[in-house]
Design a protein around this nucleic acid. Structure first.
Length: 211
DNA sequence: TGACCGATGAAT
DNA sequence: TTCATCGGTCAT
Protein backbone atom coordinates (compact mmCIF):
# COMPACT_ATOMS: atom_id res chain seq x y z
CA UNK A 1 0.00 0.00 0.00
CA UNK A 2 1.32 3.42 -0.91
CA UNK A 3 0.94 6.50 1.21
CA UNK A 4 -1.17 9.51 0.59
CA UNK A 5 -4.71 8.43 -0.21
CA UNK A 6 -7.63 7.04 1.65
CA UNK A 7 -7.58 3.21 1.45
CA UNK A 8 -10.59 1.55 -0.17
CA UNK A 9 -13.23 -0.47 1.62
CA UNK A 10 -11.43 -3.74 0.85
CA UNK A 11 -8.57 -2.62 3.09
CA UNK A 12 -10.88 -2.58 6.11
CA UNK A 13 -12.63 -5.82 5.15
CA UNK A 14 -9.50 -7.76 6.11
CA UNK A 15 -9.68 -9.57 9.43
CA UNK A 16 -8.44 -7.78 12.55
CA UNK A 17 -5.21 -9.77 12.84
CA UNK A 18 -4.29 -8.88 9.26
CA UNK A 19 -5.40 -5.26 9.45
CA UNK A 20 -3.82 -4.35 12.80
CA UNK A 21 -0.17 -4.41 11.58
CA UNK A 22 -1.14 -2.74 8.31
CA UNK A 23 -2.61 0.23 10.16
CA UNK A 24 0.85 0.99 11.55
CA UNK A 25 2.30 3.89 9.58
CA UNK A 26 -1.14 5.07 8.48
CA UNK A 27 -2.39 8.47 9.64
CA UNK A 28 -5.58 9.04 11.62
CA UNK A 29 -7.31 12.33 10.83
CA UNK A 30 -10.02 14.21 12.72
CA UNK A 31 -11.60 17.51 11.80
CA UNK A 32 -13.26 18.82 14.96
CA UNK A 33 -16.54 20.67 15.20
CA UNK A 34 -14.48 23.84 15.48
CA UNK A 35 -12.86 23.00 12.15
CA UNK A 36 -9.49 22.13 13.61
CA UNK A 37 -7.69 19.52 11.52
CA UNK A 38 -5.81 17.11 13.79
CA UNK A 39 -3.83 14.07 12.74
CA UNK A 40 -1.34 11.53 14.01
CA UNK A 41 0.66 8.63 12.59
CA UNK A 42 -0.41 5.29 14.04
CA UNK A 43 2.47 3.58 15.85
CA UNK A 44 0.64 1.06 18.07
CA UNK A 45 -2.46 -1.11 17.51
CA UNK A 46 -4.15 -4.17 18.99
CA UNK A 47 -6.33 -6.76 17.23
CA UNK A 48 -9.61 -7.87 18.79
CA UNK A 49 -10.80 -10.73 16.55
CA UNK A 50 -13.99 -11.51 18.45
CA UNK A 51 -15.33 -15.05 18.49
CA UNK A 52 -13.44 -17.07 21.09
CA UNK A 53 -11.25 -14.15 22.18
CA UNK A 54 -12.32 -13.36 25.73
CA UNK A 55 -10.75 -9.92 25.53
CA UNK A 56 -13.01 -8.87 22.67
CA UNK A 57 -16.24 -7.06 23.43
CA UNK A 58 -17.90 -9.46 20.98
CA UNK A 59 -16.61 -12.57 22.76
CA UNK A 60 -18.90 -15.53 22.25
CA UNK A 61 -21.18 -13.57 19.95
CA UNK A 62 -22.25 -11.13 22.65
CA UNK A 63 -24.30 -8.38 21.07
CA UNK A 64 -25.34 -5.29 23.01
CA UNK A 65 -26.13 -1.66 22.33
CA UNK A 66 -22.54 -0.72 23.11
CA UNK A 67 -20.77 -3.19 20.82
CA UNK A 68 -23.34 -3.06 18.02
CA UNK A 69 -21.10 -1.13 15.60
CA UNK A 70 -18.37 -3.72 16.07
CA UNK A 71 -20.65 -5.99 14.00
CA UNK A 72 -20.94 -3.47 11.19
CA UNK A 73 -18.80 -3.78 8.06
CA UNK A 74 -15.10 -2.97 8.26
CA UNK A 75 -14.19 0.70 7.98
CA UNK A 76 -16.47 2.07 10.69
CA UNK A 77 -15.25 3.78 13.85
CA UNK A 78 -16.04 2.01 17.12
CA UNK A 79 -15.62 4.23 20.17
CA UNK A 80 -16.42 3.21 23.70
CA UNK A 81 -16.08 4.58 27.21
CA UNK A 82 -14.00 2.74 29.78
CA UNK A 83 -12.80 3.08 33.38
CA UNK A 84 -15.35 5.79 33.97
CA UNK A 85 -13.28 8.44 32.24
CA UNK A 86 -11.60 7.38 29.04
CA UNK A 87 -12.65 6.95 25.41
CA UNK A 88 -11.00 4.38 23.13
CA UNK A 89 -10.95 4.51 19.32
CA UNK A 90 -11.21 1.32 17.25
CA UNK A 91 -11.37 0.57 13.54
CA UNK A 92 -14.01 -2.05 12.77
CA UNK A 93 -12.56 -4.72 10.49
CA UNK A 94 -13.78 -7.74 8.55
CA UNK A 95 -17.13 -8.33 6.90
CA UNK A 96 -20.43 -7.15 8.34
CA UNK A 97 -21.40 -9.45 11.20
CA UNK A 98 -17.83 -10.59 12.03
CA UNK A 99 -17.54 -8.49 15.19
CA UNK A 100 -13.84 -7.70 14.80
CA UNK A 101 -11.98 -4.47 15.48
CA UNK A 102 -8.51 -2.98 15.84
CA UNK A 103 -7.83 -0.73 18.83
CA UNK A 104 -5.59 2.25 18.02
CA UNK A 105 -3.34 2.63 21.06
CA UNK A 106 -0.83 5.35 20.17
CA UNK A 107 -0.08 8.04 17.60
CA UNK A 108 2.81 10.24 16.68
CA UNK A 109 1.33 13.77 16.47
CA UNK A 110 1.47 15.18 12.93
CA UNK A 111 -1.13 17.94 12.50
CA UNK A 112 -2.56 20.44 14.98
CA UNK A 113 -0.06 19.75 17.73
CA UNK A 114 -0.84 23.03 19.49
CA UNK A 115 -4.49 22.04 19.72
CA UNK A 116 -3.52 18.63 21.09
CA UNK A 117 -1.42 20.33 23.76
CA UNK A 118 -4.43 22.40 24.73
CA UNK A 119 -6.75 19.37 24.76
CA UNK A 120 -4.31 17.29 26.80
CA UNK A 121 -3.03 20.09 29.02
CA UNK A 122 0.54 18.87 28.57
CA UNK A 123 3.40 20.09 26.40
CA UNK A 124 5.62 17.06 25.88
CA UNK A 125 5.00 15.61 22.43
CA UNK A 126 5.52 12.08 23.70
CA UNK A 127 2.67 12.47 26.19
CA UNK A 128 0.07 13.75 23.75
CA UNK A 129 -1.11 10.52 22.09
CA UNK A 130 0.83 7.75 23.86
CA UNK A 131 -2.17 5.70 24.96
CA UNK A 132 -5.70 4.89 23.77
CA UNK A 133 -7.36 7.34 26.16
CA UNK A 134 -4.75 10.01 25.55
CA UNK A 135 -5.07 10.01 21.78
CA UNK A 136 -8.85 10.38 21.95
CA UNK A 137 -8.49 13.33 24.28
CA UNK A 138 -5.77 14.87 22.11
CA UNK A 139 -7.74 14.48 18.87
CA UNK A 140 -11.01 15.47 20.51
CA UNK A 141 -12.61 12.13 19.63
CA UNK A 142 -15.78 11.50 21.60
CA UNK A 143 -18.54 8.91 21.75
CA UNK A 144 -20.69 10.89 19.33
CA UNK A 145 -18.36 9.69 16.56
CA UNK A 146 -19.21 6.06 17.26
CA UNK A 147 -20.31 4.40 14.01
CA UNK A 148 -18.68 7.00 11.73
CA UNK A 149 -17.85 5.59 8.28
CA UNK A 150 -14.09 6.09 7.83
CA UNK A 151 -14.35 5.47 4.08
CA UNK A 152 -16.79 8.31 3.49
CA UNK A 153 -16.62 10.66 6.46
CA UNK A 154 -15.24 14.16 6.07
CA UNK A 155 -14.67 14.32 9.85
CA UNK A 156 -12.69 11.18 10.62
CA UNK A 157 -10.63 9.12 8.21
CA UNK A 158 -7.48 7.06 7.78
CA UNK A 159 -4.74 8.02 5.34
CA UNK A 160 -2.69 5.20 3.88
CA UNK A 161 0.92 4.92 4.94
CA UNK A 162 3.72 2.47 5.43
CA UNK A 163 6.23 1.43 8.01
CA UNK A 164 9.53 2.96 6.87
CA UNK A 165 12.37 0.70 5.72
CA UNK A 166 14.38 1.79 8.72
CA UNK A 167 11.63 0.67 11.07
CA UNK A 168 11.02 -2.83 12.39
CA UNK A 169 7.55 -4.09 13.15
CA UNK A 170 7.20 -5.96 16.42
CA UNK A 171 4.27 -7.78 18.04
CA UNK A 172 3.64 -8.33 21.76
CA UNK A 173 0.83 -9.48 24.05
CA UNK A 174 -2.04 -7.00 24.44
CA UNK A 175 -2.20 -4.57 27.34
CA UNK A 176 -4.68 -4.76 30.20
CA UNK A 177 -6.40 -7.99 29.22
CA UNK A 178 -4.93 -10.32 31.83
CA UNK A 179 -8.40 -11.69 32.59
CA UNK A 180 -8.68 -13.20 29.09
CA UNK A 181 -7.04 -16.51 30.01
CA UNK A 182 -4.78 -17.91 27.27
CA UNK A 183 -5.91 -15.16 24.91
CA UNK A 184 -4.12 -12.63 27.08
CA UNK A 185 -0.69 -13.86 25.97
CA UNK A 186 -1.29 -14.05 22.24
CA UNK A 187 0.83 -11.43 20.43
CA UNK A 188 -2.03 -9.35 19.08
CA UNK A 189 -0.41 -5.98 19.86
CA UNK A 190 1.64 -4.41 17.08
CA UNK A 191 4.10 -1.57 17.51
CA UNK A 192 6.77 0.39 15.67
CA UNK A 193 9.41 -0.01 18.40
CA UNK A 194 11.53 2.88 17.10
CA UNK A 195 8.71 5.29 17.96
CA UNK A 196 9.02 7.44 21.06
CA UNK A 197 5.23 7.81 21.17
CA UNK A 198 4.20 4.34 22.35
CA UNK A 199 1.92 3.88 25.35
CA UNK A 200 4.32 3.90 28.29
CA UNK A 201 2.40 1.30 30.22
CA UNK A 202 4.58 -1.62 29.14
CA UNK A 203 6.05 0.52 26.38
CA UNK A 204 8.02 -2.17 24.64
CA UNK A 205 9.69 -4.63 26.94
CA UNK A 206 8.09 -8.02 27.25
CA UNK A 207 8.43 -9.06 23.66
CA UNK A 208 10.68 -9.64 20.70
CA UNK A 209 8.73 -11.78 18.28
CA UNK A 210 9.38 -10.28 14.87
CA UNK A 211 6.72 -10.40 12.17
C1' DT B 1 -32.62 -1.69 40.28
C1' DG B 2 -28.06 -2.39 42.00
C1' DA B 3 -23.37 -4.37 42.41
C1' DC B 4 -19.28 -5.08 40.20
C1' DC B 5 -15.72 -4.41 36.93
C1' DG B 6 -12.82 -2.67 33.57
C1' DA B 7 -9.11 -2.69 26.03
C1' DT B 8 -6.64 3.80 31.50
C1' DG B 9 -4.02 7.58 33.23
C1' DA B 10 -1.91 10.38 36.63
C1' DA B 11 -0.17 10.95 40.94
C1' DT B 12 2.43 8.94 44.76
C1' DT C 1 1.26 0.96 43.50
C1' DT C 2 -2.91 3.33 44.27
C1' DC C 3 -6.97 5.51 43.12
C1' DA C 4 -10.20 8.47 40.65
C1' DT C 5 -14.67 7.73 38.39
C1' DC C 6 -18.89 6.02 35.82
C1' DG C 7 -21.17 3.43 31.84
C1' DG C 8 -21.96 -1.30 30.56
C1' DT C 9 -23.20 -5.71 31.84
C1' DC C 10 -25.33 -9.08 34.32
C1' DA C 11 -27.55 -10.87 38.35
C1' DT C 12 -31.44 -10.11 41.16
Amino acid sequence: MSSGGRPGLEFFLQDALTLAPKLLGCTLHHVTQEGEHLAGRIVETEAYPGGEDRASHTFGGRRTKRNEVMYSAGGHAYLYFVYGMHTCFNVVSGEEGDGEAVLVRALEPVLGIHVMERNRKVEEATKLCSGPGKLCQALGLALDSNGENLCESSRIWIEAGDVADTETLVCTPRIGVGYAAEWAVFPYRYVIPESSHLSTRNGLKAEKSRL
